[in-house]
Design a protein around this nucleic acid. Structure first.
Lengths: 241, 241
DNA sequence: TAGTGGTCTAGACCACCCT
DNA sequence: GGGTGGTCTAGACCACTAA
């Protein structure tokens, strides 16, 4: 473990246990560098980590201060880049079932070419799955994946986790993803599989997943019953420049 | 402008204009430090910026590489922490009108106390506004703000921008915010003001806005017609650790 | 084994806040 | 003017990759 991460963790502990009281000013960087037997640059890198994590903030010429909501953050598992997820999380006690509705190969549509940076002749998998949580219909997932990037998909893979297969079997490292969320009226599939009445909407999440090298890997649209999920995230530093 | 930011901008330009081709390896850090007449540490800080921005990625022992989707990012205005917003952006040519439906003062509910870290005796403003875009009902906004933090709100402020008032008149610097998005069936207010039919859902966005020092400033719920908005964001580095 | 990125140091100078 | 954070340097060592 790098020293600046160790220092950051130690300071995080101190904030959590009250050694550095909320809203107080922290010891200055020079003092900290002496205490931790390290250079000031290393202290600065540690404090940068905590700043991005939302625990502290600095004012040049004044000092480093603890945020008032630091304790909430120290408790939770929110981390940089990891701050997006379905609130209705699936935990150990829940039973998740996959039902494959469609599994085929075809050429991509124009929209899919654009999203996945493909040519018209690059074949893709088209996969429709119904996710069932505790015997209740949970979501309808429509996924498009380039055949050349993600080869060897089988019915068995679809029953398990597609992402586990991509990560563990194919050795692909995930990078960023882009999502768009909207509310929508239920269509025929929603009514059939999610048991939506005419006036029961769905929350639709479109996502493009990229590898760490920036290659588009998957374009998916997931539809949820409106009463089954909500999406939460933290938006940092809206006042940059 | 700090030197590492200048270097980052120059490298960004080179990626954009093709000096460093997509998916190629960049010159190594030592070479770059000589070219820019600076230290390697400064080059590293510049590359860190570009990494967070999603333009490049590094593999220790191997090199620094350009991401395949770097060009899309270089074009767009997406920045760190700024990567969340309504897709239906309001630009200059659009006409935005505010209609105040309710403007009152009261004590907070239990939920509001929890979200805003208030005591039961701390009074709050309760504000309901209808936003009208190009003569079309756009959103219904319900806001709760602590009276002691945001004093002096007037009808005139509500007609203009509340955030401008908080920033410019009160000198408060915004920090992070937390949002939750869900789909919902229309209620009576939605039907009256957003012209929702019974089967036309709304997209509801709950938000808690914090100051830079981490004090909760505003708790709001905004409801949109399902066909007027969608929310987009970029989720970075899902594979940390 | 050679090349490359990751980290760390000690000291320096500057910009900014506060009194 | 004194204190504090932001930046920068030159050099060093380590960890990892790739051949």
């Amino acid at each position: 473990m790098a020293k600046y991460k160790e220092v950051a963790n130690e300071i995080r502990k101190r904030i959590k246990n009250g050694t550095y009281p909320i809203k107080d000013r922290m010891p200055d960087q020079t003092t900290l560098s002496k205490e931790f037997h390290t250079s000031r640059v290393t202290i600065k890198k540690a404090l940068d980590l905590l700043t991005v994590a939302g625990l502290v903030y600095t004012i040049q010429g004044s000092g480093t201060y603890i945020k008032q909501n630091a304790l909430q953050l120290a408790e939770s598992s929110i981390r940089i880049g990891q701050n997006v997820g379905l609130t209705a999380q699936v935990d150990e006690s829940m039973e998740l079932e996959n039902k494959t509705l469609k599994f085929g190969v075809r050429f991509p549509t124009e929209e899919e070419c654009e999203q996945l940076l493909l040519k018209k002749e690059d074949p893709v998998y088209e996969i429709d799955r119904l996710r069932i949580l505790n015997k209740q219909p949970y979501s309808l997932e429509h996924s498009i994946l380039p055949l050349t990037l993600v080869p060897g998909v089988t019915q068995e893979v679809l029953q398990q986790s597609m992402y586990d297969y991509i990560r563990n079997e194919l050795g692909i490292v995930f990078g960023e993803n882009r999502q768009t969320i909207r509310a929508a009226q239920p269509d025929e599939l929603d009514k059939e599989y999610l048991n939506c009445a005419d006036d029961e909407p769905v929350l639709e999440v479109s996502k493009v997943m990229f590898t760490s090298s920036g290659t588009p890997l998957e374009y998916s649209k997931v539809r949820h019953r409106f009463d089954m999920v909500e999406m939460s995230f933290v938006n940092l530093n809206t006042e940059l420049e």
